[in-house]
Structures are given as structure tokens and as C-alpha cells.
Simulated scan of single mutants.
Amino acid sequence: MVETEAHVPGGPADRGSAPSLRSDAARNRASIVAAAAAVFAEQGIEAPLTDVARRAGVGIATLYRRFPDRDRLIDAVFAGKMGDYAGVADDALAMADPWTGFCWYVHTVCAMQSADHGFMNVLSTRFPSENAAALEAQRVRAFRGFNRLVALAKKTGRLRADFSDRDLPMLLMAHAGIVEATGNTVPELSARFVAYMIEAFSAGPDLRAALPNPPRASALQAAMARSGNCISDGAPTAGPD
């Protein structure tokens, strides 16, 4: 599709401002955002922008007219989903039992990570650039909501007193590694990891819930092979199914 809009440096096209775009340019912008969402979900936010342009059916020059840098495109794609992420904290805070809310929050956020590789990257990356201002605003909202949830869960005596807000990024980075390595082909591994982490966060053994079943050894071996973590001499890295 050929755009008819003239490009003026520093004008609305540079800012990706939809209201002033002509209809063909607006359609191009929407196509680019939709394509980026799909490509980032499959490949992560460092995916080549040429792949995004190809899927959107536009030239790379058109993509850069709409989004002069990667951060602006990431902002357009994920600001709404980051708002949903912030809403998870709001929903958890609304639960009668803060510890139940905390556990639900961890499970829900990890499920959001598993569903979208691009969002998985976004959750463990900061975007201080003003070109991703909407994304960062929602991140701050989510962070503050989570901190309130942590404070309430600690007051119940069920979340360990030394839990830190910095433990959440640690959890998300570790979980991202599991999802990346398995390609979501071994969902039991993610569920078991999250259950272990919640047990580690709890204040005592009486609060421990039963762990999900471990993955089949063959599925785990296949995932490890894809991620390059197999032992080269053929020795088994997991027991039999």
C-alpha cells in the first residue's frame, strides 16, 4: 500500500499521532501495530522490524515514518497490555485475603508472560525513554499496586517479612528463562516453578500447597535439547517417564 501523506520532519507523522493521519496512513499504522504485536509475541521485542513491516504489508520506510524508533512501536503495542498488568494488582488488592491475592497475582502475571514472548520481555525490561512514556506510566502504576499488595500480605503473617519488591523482577526473569527454553511445550515446568517460588515466599511450611505434577522426562529432555542444555555424551539429564 502506498501512502499519500506527505512526510514533514518533526510533524505528526514523526510522533505517530493517529488523529491527523489520512485514512491510508492510519490504516498503515494500525496494520503495523497489529503485525508488531504478532511478531513480538512470537519472537520477542528484539525481533527484526523488517519482519514486522513484511507482515504488515508495508515497506520498512513506511514503518519508520509511523514509528521512528523501536521504543515508540513497543509503546504502541504494549501500553494497553501493561495497563492490564497494572489491573491485575488492582484485582488482587480487591480480594478479601491479601495472601490469596498475592498468590493469584504471581500465578496470573506468570501466565501473562507465558502467553506472549514480547510481553515476557517487556515485563523484565525498563524503558526510560520518553518514547515509551505510556508504557512506563503503567509500569509505575503496577509497581505501586504490587507494593501495596506486598505490605498487606506481610501483615497477615503469611508472606515472609523479608520479601522484597526486587524479588518480583527476579521471579519474572527466571520464569522468562523457563518459558524461553521450553517454548511453552512443557507447561508443567512453569506451573511447578511458580508453585515452588510461592512456597519460598510463604512464612511457614503449614502454608505449603501441593506442587503441580513434574513434567514428563522426555518432554523436559526435548526442551533442554532445544535450548542447548543437553549433556553431550548422551547421559540422561532426567529420569524415565
Rank of each mutant, 00 (worst) to 15 (best):
R144V: 11
G145F: 06
I178L: 15
A181N: 06
A174L: 04
K154I: 03
F201E: 12
A181G: 09
H175R: 03
S202G: 12
R148K: 12
G204F: 07
P187S: 02
S164V: 06
L159C: 04
M170K: 15
R158T: 00
S190P: 03
R216Q: 14
E199R: 15
V150K: 00
P212D: 02
H175N: 05
P169D: 06
G177M: 10
E199D: 15
R158S: 07
V186E: 04
L211G: 08
L149R: 02
S202H: 04
R226F: 04
N213H: 07
R226A: 10
P214C: 08
H175E: 04
T156Y: 13
G145T: 02
A161T: 12
A153W: 14
A151R: 14
M197P: 00
T185L: 06
F193M: 05
V140N: 10
K155P: 03
Y196S: 13
Y196D: 13
G177K: 10
P212V: 02
L207Y: 13
R208S: 09
I178P: 06
F201R: 08
A225W: 06
G204S: 13
T185C: 02
A142I: 11
V194F: 04
K154E: 04
P187A: 00
M197K: 10
A174P: 00
G228M: 10
S227T: 12
L171K: 03
E180M: 09
R192M: 02
V194Q: 08
Y196T: 11
A209P: 01
V150N: 00
P187E: 01
K155E: 14
N184D: 02
M173L: 15
M170T: 15
G145L: 03
V194D: 01
R166L: 13
L149F: 03
G228K: 12
A210T: 15
A209D: 14
A195V: 11
A181W: 02
A161V: 09
F201N: 08
Y196E: 15
A161Y: 04
L189D: 10
